[in-house]
């Protein structure tokens, strides 16, 4: 499970969000809402352990995280299957067949990733989550460049994942069609005044 207590996250030395206290249990999904620049990506990167919290604690075992950023981490000269099996082997995750099927990539498996359309690349990037075999998905704008059918496909994948005891934190503007998910508006947590936590403030 994921639990945050009084978490504050900073971007470029400036605290952008603070006072986040919440828990996401297995089987639950949390959807982050907030305008551009409100700190969704920063929060997800902090949860993924890529950057340290500015204050407070973030309790999420590092070996349970599967993070999907704006960039999909695909190599354009490798085929779809090669890209997926690489990540599967890196994470020691399951075979790629189910992931390929779940995101409707079977027809494309032998195509090079560089030849895919933006939406197909995105599906491939999301299929990567399945081959990590990790329970906590952290997704940053997962539906960018997906068409309506693919969004539905993706929602089904997330629902399966939750059903299997996984959890997900998703930053998105789109309605995913996951009514069971909790929606968290980040606006109340935005840090409007820099508090005296950072070093620079010791000067001001």
């Amino acid at each position: 499970m994921l639990s945050l207590s009084n978490l504050a996250v900073a971007r470029g030395g400036v605290t952008v969000l603070r006072g986040l206290t919440l828990a996401v249990l297995p089987g639950q999904a949390l959807i982050l809402r907030g305008p551009n620049g409100s700190g969704k990506t920063t929060l997800l990167r902090t949860l993924a352990g890529l950057q340290p919290p500015a204050e407070g604690t973030c309790d999420l075992p590092a070996d349970s995280v599967a993070y999907a950023a704006h960039a999909d981490g695909l190599k354009s000269t490798l085929t779809v299957a090669e890209n997926l099996s690489f990540w599967s082997r890196i994470y020691g995750g399951p075979a790629i067949d189910r992931a390929v099927g779940a995101l409707n990539l079977t027809q494309l498996a032998r195509r090079r990733a560089g030849e895919l359309s933006a939406g197909q690349k995105r599906r491939l990037g999301l299929a990567r989550l399945l081959v990590t075999g990790r329970p906590a998905w952290l997704l940053d704008e997962p539906t960018v460049s997906l068409d309506a059918a693919s969004v539905a496909l993706f929602a089904a994948v997330v629902r399966d994942h939750l059903g299997a005891g996984g959890l997900a934190v998703i930053a998105t503007h789109v309605d995913l069609g996951l009514p069971e998910a909790t929606i968290l508006d980040l606006d109340p947590y935005r840090a409007r005044v820099i508090q005296s936590t950072g070093f620079d403030e010791a000067f001001a």
């Binding site: 990167r45 993924a48 352990g49 890529l50 590092a62 070996d63 995280v65 599967a66 993070y67 950023a69 704006h70 960039a71 999909d72 981490g73 695909l74 190599k75 990540w87 890196i90 994470y91 020691g92 990567r128």
Partner: peptide, 16 residues
């Protein structure tokens, strides 16, 4: 190259 396409982020959260 890995930094640009996001692979480095993913490798940093991988078990290796």
């Amino acid at each position: 190259l890995d930094f640009e396409d996001g692979s480095l982020d993913l490798l940093a959260t991988a078990p290796i």
